[in-house]
Structure formats: structure tokens, C-alpha cells
Design a protein around this nucleic acid. Structure first.
Lengths: 219, 219
DNA sequence: GGTTCACTATACTGTTCTGTTTGGTAAGTA
DNA sequence: TACTTACCAAACAGAACAGTATAGTGAACC
């Protein structure tokens, strides 16, 4: 169990390096982050990093792409609650919204967003790599759900793409505002309140009588 | 009119330096930006920069604070249209929304936002300096307007702070999504469409019969 | 036993940057 | 004329870092 014997796995060092890279990059930014520190955090020597990844840029892009993929998967999992809304559309939307907002508020997701903003001008490839695979894809997926709901008569006829973007706006902006740029941990109860309010506002604007037999009012 | 004779103003070199600093910082990021390049862009020698500003950090923070102040002023000017909504609340909101969204979409405003995200972890002071003075103050100002409108019976009773955040979400998220991280110039007509849609959704959710005698429907 | 492979630790090269210093120029004031 | 103030261009010291090279270790395989 000594340190040297712990050179257990072989190939998964690459994973450890990419994880450490995302951690260090998100804490320090691309320029300030040093490959040596990433190696230290990964528990690996610097030349090992260069054996697995081409250079610092490659390291950064791979780490970002991997994290984006993971965050998107979490969001889509939460959204899946809307695939079979059942007879209570509001309840289904609230669950999905709460799930997605929890994902958006967690540290990794926020770090990914901030890092993308930070480095987009130096790495234009990030456009397709990150927002294209997270907010963009998520927005499309929500639009798909809304289109179905409109066809089924739960929502009034509307542009589903715009509706999806607006829904995300109702959801994320209040949460982002209250997190004070990630320095304040938004408590789960507040996340719940925000997502409930987002669904309420959205349904007041988009629900049909069919979809909201309770009349679209709440509380 | 030679270059040397152009050493016209004395004190406004500071202004030129801060302007150049914001330009270079927003293009390169804090770490990558070099003081030498900022001096070149400002048309000034490097030691002159250090005569006016303490060090690179000071240079950065002053440039950010100044830009934040300017952006907030533009936003508040657009919002002022809501101070006397007149008898057509929808028209007033559309004008205010369009004005604010134009500000949010311009290059300087976007650069300010992205730079803040980028450097927030290295400069925690930015929290009070930038979002505290732009989105935060703007959100408060909108909440003030909404509170008045609710008291006057134009909007239904609601939490004005949350309503303001939601309104900003409806407005900014669709625009941000379509700008593809600032790489796509959103045409003015699309900005108009987005702001109209934001107001429409907002009023469907928040307007009273008093406020929208046309029944809250449009098109 | 010998070879290969993945790794470690350390050190080196070349570059880049900050912040300062030096020496000199031009304008404004007494 | 002498003095001050603001500026310039160039060079400097000190530090940091990317990426590579060197030398050595331990396990797996033939």
C-alpha cells in the first residue's frame, strides 16, 4: 500500500490527468494554470502528462470537452422527466426544472460555463465543444419536448425554440443572480422556489386550458 | 500635426490608458495581456502607465470599474422609459426592453461580462465592482419599476425582485443563445423580435386586465 | 536473464513578462 | 536662463513557465 505500489492502474492515468486539469484550469484559468501543478494534483510526473496529451492546449480542450459531455448528460437526464408528463404537466415540469437547475448550480457546471466565457476568444473551437454541446443541445431538447406538448394541446401554439430559450432564462437567470457569481451557495430550498416560480410564469404564459385544468393559478 | 506635437492633452492620458487597457484585456484576458501592448495601444510609453496606475492589477480593476459604470448608465437610461409608462404599458415595456437588450448585445457590454466571468476567481473584488453595479443594480431598478406598476394595478401582486430577474432572463438568454458566444452578430430585427417576445411572455404571466385592456393577446 | 514499457524525479533551454532604471527631450514657469 | 514636470525609448533584473532531455526504477513478458 506504499506510494509506489499504488501505481495500480495503467491507462486510467489519462483520466486522472484530465480530471486534475479541469480542476486546476477552473480554479486558475488557462494562462495561470501550470502543467506542473496539474501533474501534482493528478499525482503524476510532468513528462507523463506530455506522454498522454500533446501540449497544454490539447490538455485544456480535452478536459473541457469531457466535462461538457458529462454536464449535458446530467441535464438531459433531468429533462427526461418531461418525456412522459402524465396527467399533471405542472408537476412534471417542476421536477424537470428543479433537476436541471440543480445541475446548473453545481460547481462543475458553473466552472465549465465561466471557463468557456473566459477562454472563448483564445480557443474559438470551444464554441462547438462546450455551449454547442450543453446549453445549445439542452435548448434543442427542451424545444423538442415543447413542440410535442404543443401538438398534444398542452401548450398553446408557439415557436418551441424561443419558448425553450425563454424557459431556460426564467430558470437560470434568477439562480445566477442569487449565486453572486458562484460565491454564494444557493440553498436547495431556494433552488426549489426559483424553479417553481419559473414553471409558474411559463405556464401562465404558455399553458392552454387543456393543459392546466386547475386554471393556471397557484398558491 | 506631427506625432510628437500630438502630445496635446496632459491628464487625459490616464483615460486613454484605461480605455486601451479594457480593449486589450477583453481581447486577451488578464494574464495574456501585456502592459507593453496596452501602452502601445494607448500611444504611451510603458513607464507612463506605471506613473498613472500602481500596477497591472490596479490597471485592470480601474478599467473594469469604469466600464461597468458606463454600461450601467446606458442600461438605466433605457429603463427610464418605464418611469412614465403612459397609457400603453406594453409599448413602454417593449421600448425599454429593446433598449436594454441593445446595450447587453453590444461589444463592450459583452466583453465586460465575459471578462468578469473569466477573472472573478482571481479578483473577488470584481463581485462588488461589476455585477454589483450592472446586472445587480439594473435588476433592482427594474424591481422598483415593477413594484410601482403592481401598486398601480398594472401588474398583478408579485415579488418584484423575482419578476425583475425573470424579465431579464426572458430578455437576455434568448439573445445570448443566438449570439453564439459573441461570434455571431445578432441583427437589430432579431433583437427587436426577442424583446417583443419577452415582453409578451412577461405580460401574459404578470399583467392584470387593467394593465392590458386589449386582453393580453397579441398578433 | 534480458528486453520493453510506463513511469518518476530532476534539470535544462528558451521565451515571456513585470516592474524599474537610465538617460534624454520638450513644454511651461519664474 | 534655470527649474520643474511630463513624457519617451531602450534596457535591465528577476521570476515564471512550456516543453524536452537525462537518468533511473520497477513490473510484465519472452
Amino acid at each position: 500500500m506504499s506510494a509506489s505500489t499504488a501505481s495500480r492502474g495503467r491507462i486510467d492515468k489519462r483520466e486522472a490527468i484530465l480530471d486534475a486539469a479541469f480542476t486546476v484550469f477552473s480554479a486558475q484559468g488557462y494562462e495561470r494554470a501550470s502543467v506542473q501543478e496539474i501533474a501534482d494534483v493528478a499525482g503524476v510526473a510532468k513528462p507523463t502528462v506530455y506522454k498522454h496529451l500533446q501540449d497544454k492546449e490539447d490538455l485544456f480542450l480535452q478536459a473541457m470537452a469531457g466535462t461538457a459531455e458529462a454536464v449535458l448528460a446530467e441535464n438531459l437526464a433531468a429533462l427526461d422527466r418531461l418525456r412522459n408528463p402524465g396527467d399533471d404537466l405542472r408537476a412534471a415540469m417542476e421536477e424537470a426544472a428543479y433537476g436541471m437547475l440543480l445541475v446548473c448550480c453545481n460547481d462543475r457546471s458553473r466552472a465549465l460555463r465561466y471557463l468557456t466565457f473566459a477562454e472563448i476568444s483564445r480557443f474559438p473551437d470551444l464554441i462547438d465543444l462546450v455551449p454547442g454541446r450543453t446549453s445549445g443541445r439542452l435548448s434543442e431538447a427542451i424545444a423538442d419536448r415543447f413542440a410535442r406538448l404543443a401538438v398534444s394541446g398542452y401548450l398553446r401554439p408557439c415557436d418551441p425554440v424561443l419558448a425553450a430559450e425563454q424557459f431556460l432564462g426564467l430558470l437560470t437567470v434568477p439562480a445566477e443572480e442569487r449565486s453572486r457569481m458562484g460565491t454564494r451557495k444557493v440553498p436547495a430550498a431556494e433552488v426549489r422556489t426559483i424553479s417553481t416560480a419559473a414553471v409558474d410564469t411559463f405556464l401562465r404564459a404558455y399553458a392552454t386550458a387543456t393543459g392546466e385544468t386547475d386554471g393556471g393559478r397557484q398558491r
